[in-house]
Amino acid sequence: MTVVRQAGDRTRRGARPGPVARAGVAHAPSRTMRAVLLGGIGLFFLIPVVAMVEFTLRKGLGGGHDASRWIALAQGGLTGQYRQVLVALGNSVGLAVGTVLIVLLLLVPTLLLVHIRFPRLRRVMEFLCILPISIPAIVLVVGLAPVYSLLSRLAGSGVWTLAFAYGITVLPYAYRAIQANLDGVDVRTLSEAARTLGAGWGSVLFRVLVPNLRRGILAGAFIAVAVVLGEFTIASLLSRVNLQTALVVVSKADPYTAVILSLLALTFAFLLLLLIGRLGAERTRPRRRRPIGGRP
């Protein structure tokens, strides 16, 4: 058999991994520049966290520091007056899951449909998705109040109904994350290639498009989780209990414990970020296979 090798047909071993290698990519910053940038950003975020930790360790008016409040919370657990925080945390996590589901089930398929079948609607889609960022939460609540009044009569006033409002508030952030990924992938050609190979729309979506949009989808999901865990205004004004409203209640009685709980919530969000980042890492190594016919 003739095995063809051509000049100028080299393997790009050193090429940047990613769905589409684009020409004209800027040079990566030097190691020193990276350290300066990361250090600066790290300090920016670290200073308030250190201040929070310092606050929780204060002994009181007498001065000095100890870990008594942390120990007390760890020994007592979230019982008694703090029980509501645990319930609120459960509410927020449930709301985060609901919001992510709304984003994934509505936004991702809609964006794909617009990209593949109705590219002329891209501008309209972008406008609609970015719109909520320009509407203050308080204005949003005023508009949502009559809707929720109706919703309460139809489906009850469960805290889960907040997921609909949160679905709107996270739309701009989730849209940008997913759209950025979509811009780097030729979804139309990939879907057409899959269809000519015998794939139905389900296979096109789950075997081809979603794996290539994994980073954007995960980033969108993370942003949705982060926004929901930090949301206060809508929940408070619509009289629902979530983590932030519970922390405000706790802070009125015990500001130290409220800050400890805030730090724990922050740690939870940070671990979530790490987990999502891990899941979103691109696969650039082949899966291990059994050799065929003696071939390695």
């Binding site: 050609t189 000519t196 696969r283």
Partner: peptide, 29 residues
């Protein structure tokens, strides 16, 4: 529908599925 026409097609744009290796791409159909 396209998926039932039993055609093979090579596109103008590079159309390999980026998340799959060359072998897995060929296996796809």
């Amino acid at each position: 529908p396209t998926s039932q026409r039993d055609m093979g097609m090579v596109f103008q744009a590079y159309s390999l599925f980026p998340h799959l290796s060359a072998g897995e791409n060929v296996e796809f159909g």
